[in-house]
């Protein structure tokens, strides 16, 4: 069996100090293997997004161990973490987080500009490829404010994919979308999953989570694996 791409051991996260101290994550132990599509579900405030932020190296755990791509995160410098974020992780947010004063193409190319090993001449081909994948090639010169919510999320997906990451971390990717667009986005995820991409997504929607191989439920900071129906609604 291959090694897990994500592995946590007694992961804890505490916010605040003194009386206002609040433990959001309590001894979270779980693993995700390459090529898996995993959902984390739970009520609002249960710690889903906090967990995802820690897994995506946007935040740090208070205690516990975390290994990403076989590397213990505690031992990494901020520079090494940046490289991991850039090359191994693709982020998709609920509110898209596109940069308003950049065009679609500029938004998509952004992660590539942080990788100094790439040549600029390679950018346009890569951008065209991902835009073709998400069906927005004609919108390359548009600004995010000129796009619909579904289109913006597809741009965000294209941006996440341009570096060909091993893991896609999706924070409520369909939360701001109507059902038609949500379905379109999920279809894209399944396509990438087919290409052996590991996907971890957070959702409220049972319909979305049921499309994943594994479903974790987080409640009161504790993570529990629930029996998944396993890709039953794949389109």
């Amino acid at each position: 069996m291959s090694k897990p791409i994500i592995a946590t051991d007694k992961l804890c996260k505490v916010f605040g100090r003194g009386n206002s101290k609040q433990q959001v994550l309590k001894n979270v132990d779980f693993s995700i293997f390459p090529g898996e599509m995993v959902a984390i579900v739970g009520p609002s405030g249960s710690g889903k997004s906090t967990l995802l932020s820690i897994l995506g190296l946007l935040d740090e755990q208070t205690s516990g161990d975390y290994q990403l791509c076989g590397q213990a995160i505690d031992t990494l410098s901020t520079f090494q973490k940046s490289v991991l974020r850039n090359k191994h992780i693709g982020w998709i947010f609920q509110n898209f987080n596109l940069v308003g004063d950049m065009t679609v193409a500029e938004n998509i190319v952004l992660p590539l500009t942080f990788d100094k090993t790439l040549k600029k001449s390679q950018y346009s081909e890569k951008v065209s490829n991902v835009l073709k994948k998400v069906g927005l090639l004609e919108k390359a010169g548009s600004f995010p404010s000129e796009l619909s919510g579904g289109q913006q999320q597809r741009v965000a997906i294209a941006r996440a994919l341009i570096t060909e990451p091993e893991i896609l971390l999706c924070d409520e990717p369909t939360g701001n979308l109507d059902s038609e667009n949500a379905e379109l986005v999920m279809q894209l995820f399944h396509e990438f999953h087919q290409e052996n991409c590991t996907i971890l997504l957070i959702t409220h929607s049972a319909e979305i989570s049921e499309q994943c191989q594994k479903i974790y439920r987080i409640n009161d900071g504790k993570l529990v694996l629930t029996p998944a129906t396993g890709l039953k609604n794949v389109v």
Partner: peptide, 16 residues
């Protein structure tokens, strides 16, 4: 800050 947050999330390092 959101823009810079996105950039950091996408892998730019702090000195850069």
């Amino acid at each position: 800050k959101n823009k810079y947050g996105v950039m950091l999330a996408l892998g730019i390092n702090q000195p850069a």
